[in-house]
């Protein structure tokens, strides 16, 4: 579990093949990071499940979540639990993390560069 002081922001990014996972409910990777230390932990999930991810987010007490598409039910739940959800983010995880650390990442941000390659290539 990430132990952070209240003023240090922490985030969970759902990932897939180095990019922000297009779907929260189908993600099999998650990255935990803090504003100060950057990437802390990379987790491989045993199965894709939005419920399990919500449970992990609660357990790790992260304050923000970065993902692609998320169903409203889970968005509302996390918001209710005071977790800020930055959804509809499209781009590489590293780009999203750096942007988040700089406090610039917003919901709906899309990485604009020709290097957004398909994962299978």
């Amino acid at each position: 579990m990430i132990h952070t002081a209240h003023h240090v922001r922490s985030v969970l990014l759902v990932a897939q093949d180095g990019c922000v996972a297009p779907r929260f409910d189908m993600a099999l990777e998650a990255m935990l990071a803090t504003e100060v230390e950057g990437m802390k932990q990379s987790l491989i999930l045993p199965q894709s499940s939005a419920e399990e991810l919500c449970h992990l987010i609660m357990k790790e007490s992260v304050q923000e979540v970065v993902c692609g598409g998320i169903e409203d039910e889970f968005f509302q739940y996390l918001t209710w639990k005071k977790v800020r959800v930055l959804d509809n983010v499209i781009g590489p995880v590293d780009w999203a993390l750096e942007r988040w650390k700089a406090g610039k990442l917003q919901a709906g941000d899309i990485f604009r560069q020709e290097s957004v390659a398909s994962p299978e290539e």
């Binding site: 897939q16 990019c19 297009p22 779907r23 189908m26 692609g68 598409g69 499209i90 899309i110 604009r112 020709e114 957004v116 390659a117 398909s118 994962p119």
Partner: peptide, 15 residues
Amino acid sequence: RGIFCAHVVRNTICQ
């Protein structure tokens, strides 16, 4: 425009 389709469409089939 120019974005990998699976990241936009987000279909279960594509995933």
